[in-house]
């Protein structure tokens, strides 16, 4: 169980994490979702005691990380697969990690086997492909057989096979009763992996719920509308306080409105509609809307 309480981190003038509180329960994969720069990595570094919170705290089973005895036995983490000396062999990298927490050399063989790196264990880590580096990082996280696991964007840059492997791996870890926190900036990925979601934007908590709840709640009121006068309609909808985004095909996605409302507004201005359909909107759209990262349809841009 991970518990963040009023966690805040400021770097100079940047507020990377802003009064963030959430809990991560054991036995499930919890997605930690936010767009680039939302503060996911910063939060994870604070969980591991690497960065000092400006205020607030984060506890692991009731204790700050820095008070854990031989912490690799409690918390395993993969924040960055590149945190390995490139000239050191995979085996040597795991050897020193294991030794530092009093773990036997036998355990190094086990985790190498678990992630499928036994054959290349003697090769220098600098020559590994991204997928292999990621596996080495996961091996390091698993060394102490920890009950809490943190992964920062573990599937970034992996091929579909690698993504599937990691996804199933994390679900397997959660099924064993472990606490698993995985960050990502892709809701579609998290929808497949995580059963709970902690969503943040610009350092602040946006929501904490199950993935299903989040998806349903955030896609309720989206309407897709196509019109030859999309510019005019878009501007009017923005004036009424709705959020409007223009898709690649020229269609508008209106959030916060029902199809009735959009239809009425269009009719009142005599705007012709070619399509008007309520959406179980795409996950990414819902996510972008919630995190405030969407490219909003500004009235000023419609006058062209």
């Amino acid at each position: 169980m991970i518990e963040a309480i009023g966690l805040t981190k400021r770097y100079g003038n940047t507020v990377a994490v802003d009064n963030l509180s959430f809990t991560v329960a054991p036995g499930r994969v919890t997605g930690f979702l936010g767009p680039n720069g939302a503060g996911k990595s910063t939060t994870m570094r604070m969980i591991l005691g690497l960065d000092r919170p400006t205020s607030g705290k984060v506890l692991i089973d009731g204790k700050p990380y820095t008070q854990l005895d031989r912490p690799l036995r409690t918390v395993g983490a993969l924040l960055d697969a590149k945190w390995v000396h490139p000239n050191r062999s995979a085996r040597a990298h795991l050897d020193w990690l294991a030794k530092s927490n009093g773990l036997p050399g036998k355990r190094v063989d086990e985790v190498l086997d678990l992630v499928g790196l036994t054959k290349v264990a003697k090769r220098r880590a600098g020559g590994f492909s991204l997928g292999m580096s990621q596996r080495l990082g996961i091996a390091g996280a698993l060394l102490g057989d920890p009950k809490v696991l943190l992964f920062d964007e573990p599937v970034n840059g992996l091929d579909p096979e690698g993504i599937l492997w990691i996804r199933q791996f994390m679900q397997g870890l959660a099924a064993e009763g472990r606490t698993v926190l995985v960050s990502s900036h892709l809701l579609s990925e998290m929808a497949l992996t995580a059963s709970d979601l902690v969503v943040i934007g610009r350092g602040k908590l946006i929501s904490q719920s199950t993935t299903t709840e989040f998806v349903e709640r955030s896609t309720e009121n989206a309407v897709r509308v196509r019109s030859p006068h999309a510019d005019k309609l878009g501007a009017m909808l923005v004036d009424k306080g709705f959020t409007v985004r223009e898709g690649e095909d020229g269609a508008l996605t209106v959030t916060g409105a029902t199809s009735d409302q959009v239809g009425d507004i269009a009719a009142s201005a005599g705007v012709v509609l070619h399509e008007l359909s309520p959406q179980r909107g795409s996950l990414e759209e819902a996510f972008m809307q919630l995190t405030g990262d969407s490219v909003e349809y500004h009235a000023a841009e419609t006058g062209k």
Binding site: L50, Y65, P71, L72, W83, H85, S100, G140
Partner: peptide, 13 residues
């Protein structure tokens, strides 16, 4: 190479 972070993660004092 970031191994200092791995080190401090393993031995937080």
């Amino acid at each position: 190479f970031g191994t200092i972070k791995a080190t401090f993660q393993a031995v937080p004092d």
